[in-house]
């Protein structure tokens, strides 16, 4: 145990150092401002901003939300104000809250990712990492998601790394199947990524049979929440066994127990998403819960449980 007799919670994902392994997922925490009404968000391992594109994006036609059994379907459509607005309007406010920031980015083409990196290069304040959301459609390839094409994952990672001296995290989708997921993770590593975020939402839909129309304006949406936790956990386990890159595991985590499951299965950090909509202070609760769990097991360092149930070689 450390001096304060509390277990060490700090973790390292390549060159990314987190004071604890609790990260807020992109798109579920806005830029933290709303949540800072409830607690000091600088206590979190990091917050991932909403995903920013080169230009502002209107998002999808409403309705955008439909609740399912133990989960939520959303089709927000990555609505955002554009990267320049993030840099000029939002970033100063986040810095005032002293939160560690992972900046999420998405483009519609490889060139857009490069241009985004050029915009991010201008940022003077400290950004912990950028997360490349590669689950969005590539318009150059007929709308196929970037991470279904491992060679494109590498290409984008290289082009961003060439410009930015900031660690890069690549966020992968569970919708590609394990073979492509593993290949994409390898290519991300080749491209210079420090870590993988896993998983993005699963594609899903729902139907209003009374009015005979889809529940979502966009028809298809992304499923999140406890309904997808077993799938997310399996993906984390599968990728952990490959020992490619450190991981931020996410998908349906609502409690500290869920978080510990992901750590044991090989996630070096965990992401909280949909639970933020319900329990506004869930991040803090999970930090405390993980710490208490370690204490109850007489474990002095969270790193000692990471990957305990997978064939992960702990990255020291």
């Amino acid at each position: 145990m450390t001096e304060s007799n509390k277990p060490n919670l700090s973790v390292r994902l390549g060159e990314i150092n987190l004071k604890n392994p609790i990260v807020m997922c992109s798109g579920t925490f806005a830029n933290g401002l709303e949540y800072s009404n409830f607690y000091d968000i600088s206590e979190l391992g990091a917050i991932t901003t909403k995903s920013y594109s080169l230009k502002c994006k209107d998002g999808n036609k409403p309705p955008r939300i439909w609740e399912t059994a133990c989960g939520v379907l959303n089709s927000i459509g990555l609505q955002n104000d554009g990267i320049e607005s993030f840099i000029n309007d939002h970033l100063p406010k986040i810095k005032d809250m002293n939160a560690d920031i992972i900046l999420s980015l998405f483009g519609e083409s490889c060139e857009e990712f490069r241009e985004l990196a050029l915009a991010v290069k201008k940022i003077k304040t400290n950004i912990l990492a950028v997360e490349l959301n590669l689950s969005c459609p590539n318009v150059e390839k007929g709308g196929m998601i970037f991470c279904s094409m491992p060679e494109v994952v590498e290409k984008i990672t290289i082009s961003v790394k060439e410009i930015l001296n900031i660690p890069v995290i690549v966020k992968l989708s569970p919708n590609t199947g394990d073979t492509i997921m593993i290949e994409s993770a390898k290519r991300a590593k080749n491209g210079g990524a420090e870590a993988i975020s896993l998983i993005n939402t699963l594609v899903g839909t729902a139907v209003d049979i009374e009015n005979i129309k889809p529940r979502l304006g966009n028809v298809l949406g992304g499923l999140s929440g406890p309904a997808i936790k077993p799938i997310a956990l399996a993906k984390v386990y599968t990728l952990s066994n490959e020992n490619i890159l450190p991981m931020i595991g996410m998908g349906g985590i609502c409690t500290w127990n869920d978080a510990v499951e992901f750590l044991l299965m090989g996630a070096n950090a965990i992401g909280i998403g949909t639970a933020n909509f319900v329990e506004y202070c869930v991040g803090l609760k999970i930090i405390k819960g993980v710490s208490d769990y370690l204490e109850s097991k007489d474990i002095d360092d969270v790193n000692k449980i990471i990957g305990k149930l997978s064939n992960k070689q702990i990255i020291k």
Partner: peptide, 27 residues
């Protein structure tokens, strides 16, 4: 009314189309 997720302005889930002065639809 709209289906809502966070309720506090963070998630953009409860968007509704509003026609602005220029006739453009913004969410």
């Amino acid at each position: 009314e709209q289906r809502m997720a966070c309720g506090i302005g963070a998630c953009m889930g409860c968007a509704i189309g509003i026609k602005n002065e220029d006739g453009e639809i913004i969410y």
